[in-house]
Simulated scan of single mutants.
Amino acid sequence: MDKRASLIKAFKEEIKRARPASYPVCIDSFTNLWQYEFGSFEQLPPDIERLVAYRAAELGLMDDDG
């Protein structure tokens, strides 16, 4: 399994185990690691891309409509 697939799998498992209140921390941690490892958010699966975009909108980093 390549590094991207491994990180995505670990993130999905973490989200499944996490309480909803801790989702923002999980997403922030994932995006920090992804950015460090790969330099951009390209090649994210659509479901994870939506979570990251929603979190960015929550933080005021982008518009809610995408």
Rank of each mutant, 00 (worst) to 15 (best):
Y23G: 11
K9M: 03
E42C: 14
F11I: 03
I48P: 00
D65K: 15
R50K: 12
R17C: 11
S40I: 08
K12E: 15
D28S: 07
P24A: 04
L7Y: 02
F41C: 04
D47K: 08
L7T: 05
K9A: 14
M1G: 12
E58M: 01
A57H: 02
A53W: 02
D63W: 06
L44H: 00
P45H: 08
W34E: 00
L59K: 06
D65A: 09
R50Q: 09
D2S: 11
R55F: 01
F38K: 01
A56V: 00
F38D: 02
D47P: 12
R55T: 02
L33K: 11
R17Y: 12
G66L: 13
A56K: 02
L33H: 09
D63Y: 07
A5Q: 13
G66C: 13
G39M: 02
F30V: 07
V52C: 05
Y36D: 10
Y54W: 06
I8E: 04
S40N: 07
Y36T: 06
P46W: 08
E58C: 06
D64H: 13
L33T: 10
D63K: 15
D47L: 09
T31C: 00
R50G: 04
F11V: 07
F11L: 09
P24I: 00
A18Q: 04
P20G: 07
Y23E: 12
S29D: 15
E13W: 03
S6Y: 13
I27S: 06
L61Y: 12
A5V: 06
K12C: 14
C26F: 04
G66N: 13
Y36G: 07
L44S: 02
F41E: 00
F38W: 08
D2R: 05
M1Y: 13
D65G: 11
S40D: 13
S6K: 12
A56H: 01
A21I: 14
M62P: 00
N32G: 09
D2W: 10
K3T: 05
V25R: 06
Y23H: 14
E49Y: 07
I8M: 08
E42W: 07
A53Y: 03
D63P: 06
A57P: 04
P46M: 15
S22D: 12
L7A: 01
E14C: 05
C26N: 11
E13D: 15
C26M: 05
G66K: 15
I27V: 15
E37G: 03
A18E: 11
G66P: 05
V25L: 12
C26I: 05
D2A: 09
E13N: 12
R50I: 13
S6H: 06
M1L: 12
Q35V: 02
A53T: 05
V52P: 01
P20V: 11
K3R: 08
I15V: 10
I8V: 08
K3F: 08
Y23K: 13
K16V: 06
L51K: 02
L33W: 04
R55M: 04
R17E: 07
S29R: 09
E37K: 07
R19E: 15
S6W: 10
R4T: 02
A21T: 15
A56C: 14
K12R: 08
R19S: 15
K3M: 08
A10I: 10
A5Y: 14
E14T: 10
A57E: 00
P45W: 06
G60Y: 04
